[in-house]
Design a protein around this nucleic acid. Structure first.
Lengths: 115, 115
DNA sequence: AATTATATATAGACAGACTATATATGTCAA
DNA sequence: TTGACATATATAGTCTGTCTATATATAATT
């Protein structure tokens, strides 16, 4: 079953920032890591990621620095700033609230998020 | 806390169709019902709903019929078609898969959806 | 008489993710 | 040695979904 593209909207910034919480990463690595951590559910495209990263950098949520790789092109590492950390927390809470509300509509029951 | 608009993307069709599973409804009623069932989290705008409904009708997922109200303007009721039912099931499964994958990335653990 | 709630509808703006394309290097197989 | 593939970043243009703003119309309330 193909993942409905419409559903993916909006939460990519959250996911990418979440990855950076565990340590600095370069773009290509994030694509791989996201695939791995989601059990092959998310296939973020390079053409989606790089503009997203530039946007986050422009807002001051991440900072970037170049670093030589042992082989191949130099890598551009991204680091989650202090502001980025606080924005990430807000985004996580926002996601929980949203997912919880969807569950309420779909399952008709209550939903305490934290679960 | 304002609900991050970016997160809302894509799942409105799912939610609206889910409402129709319980019986035919008219547009204005859906806005109210969605607000109620989500504990005041979703505030779907009329300008978002009606184009969405027309789209679903065009795809054959819902059918529509006019009905006089006891007072005021006549209401346009929407009905979930057989095809709509099957699309709804796919969309629900797709949502579960997606929400589950997000949880994996955020909480770092496993996730059996059905929970 | 004016405002608010009910009820539907469209045009235009905007944001997020996509595809397609471009660049550049290293490895591996034919 | 040539081509294919994986690594790595980047931008232009497109598409889709939701938004705001606006329009129409009727009934109830103030």
């Amino acid at each position: 079953m193909e993942l409905d593209k419409g559903l993916v909207s909006g939460s990519m910034a959250l996911l990418v920032m979440k990855l950076l919480e565990d340590g600095d990463m370069y773009g290509y690595q994030m694509v791989e890591e996201l695939k791995k951590r989601s059990d092959d559910t998310f296939h973020l495209k390079a053409g989606s990621l790089y503009p997203l990263l530039h946007g986050l950098e422009g807002k001051g949520y991440v900072s970037a620095y170049e670093k030589e790789a042992t082989a191949g092109k130099p890598r551009r590492y991204y680091h989650l700033t202090k502001q980025g950390h606080s924005v990430l927390q807000e985004k996580e809470e926002s996601w929980n609230l949203y997912a919880c509300a969807v569950r309420k509509v779909l399952k008709g029951g209550v939903c305490s998020y934290g679960t």
